Amino acid sequence: MIDNREKHKCCGCTACYSICPQNAIKMEFDEEGFLYPVVNKKNCKHCGLCEKVCPYTVLTKEENCSTCVAIQNKNDNRRNISTAGGAFSLIADYILQHNGIVYAVGYSEMVVCHKKCTEQDQLRELCGSKYVQSTLNETFKEIKTHLKIGKFVLFVGTPCQAHGLKRYIGESPNLIIIDLLCLGTSSPGLFSKWIDYLNQKYDSKVSYVRFRDKSYGYAVPNIRVQFSNGKIIEQSYDAKVHSNMFFKHFYDVRPSCYQCVYREKPRVSDFTIGDCVNIGQFNKTMDDNKGTTRMWIHTERGMQIFKELTFQMRVTSIINTCNNICGGATKFRYLLIEGNSLMIQSV
């Protein structure tokens, strides 16, 4: 029974909650505003499934070989609303075009949560970083249901969420996972208090927060807060206070983030994506202040999708400079782009 677990071992991925056949586990907020599993001991049948599915208890040590590139979405609208180069929307569009379903992070009444997307016009809300741990609710259960009927599903989340989902689902040829370069997950409770503060001060409800708005370019991170009455605040203390505290590490992140076991080991995802702020070191012509994504491709399935999408992106070869992406056991590769051919070089 997964109960009274030390907090540094629990990432809140909901795998145990999702797998419990007795519905004896609920996700409840603690005093810091993070969700943890709580077991109803009267309903628990001690089947042990919650312990078996927990990603912390089974950490793969297998080597994998990841390819590292920098990309930009050629669709300027998609790229502009993205945090970096628009890699997520490229892959999401691909999944939707194959009659698939996308699960990524959006807002529900300003609660950061995973949402289901089945239409391309729904992707806009899911683009861009949220910098808050998302509430997963029934996401894992829904994904399993879609996979059983043969649907393609794309899931985007933190490395720990990706591990939790993979432990819950197992191997599935129709599941594509993107995980993110992660600084840690900040408290949904603190985010909620910031939203409440803004609601009261500006006498209107916050309707959307874009943490990496590009109105002033990619190099000048701008927080844009929209209210239901049409008011917008940006480039101000009230707009930036939440993200400033997070990036300066003044905010508490989840206890498990301080001892993260998911970022320094082989990824279970097909792709990892993050900012490539130093694109000028690799390709000066791509350094246009509009955003570039550093992408790691971990699986053959991921490489197949990448190759199918290359005509929709600008790609340049980069040598991986982030040793934490998959750990010391991982071998890295990078792509040599010569004309229309892709050549893989080991490093």
Rank of each mutant, 00 (worst) to 15 (best):
N4D: 13
N4A: 05
C10R: 03
C11R: 06
C11S: 14
C11A: 11
P21G: 07
N23G: 09
N40I: 00
K41Y: 07
K42R: 14
C47T: 07
E51L: 13
K52Y: 06
I71G: 09
T83W: 00
A87C: 10
F88P: 00
D93T: 08
L96Q: 09
H98C: 08
A104Y: 05
C113E: 10
K116L: 11
Q120F: 12
N137K: 15
G157M: 06
C160Y: 02
S172R: 00
I176F: 15
C182Q: 05
Y197M: 09
Q200S: 09
D203M: 11
R212V: 01
Y218L: 04
V220H: 13
P221M: 06
R224I: 01
V225N: 06
G230K: 07
I233V: 04
Q235Y: 08
D238I: 05
K248V: 00
H249I: 04
C257I: 07
C260I: 01
V277D: 05
V277G: 05
I279M: 02
Q281I: 04
Q281R: 12
F282P: 00
D287F: 01
N289H: 03
G291K: 05
G302V: 03
F306D: 00
L309Q: 08
T316Q: 11
N320E: 08
N324H: 12
G327D: 08
L335A: 14
L336R: 15
S346R: 15
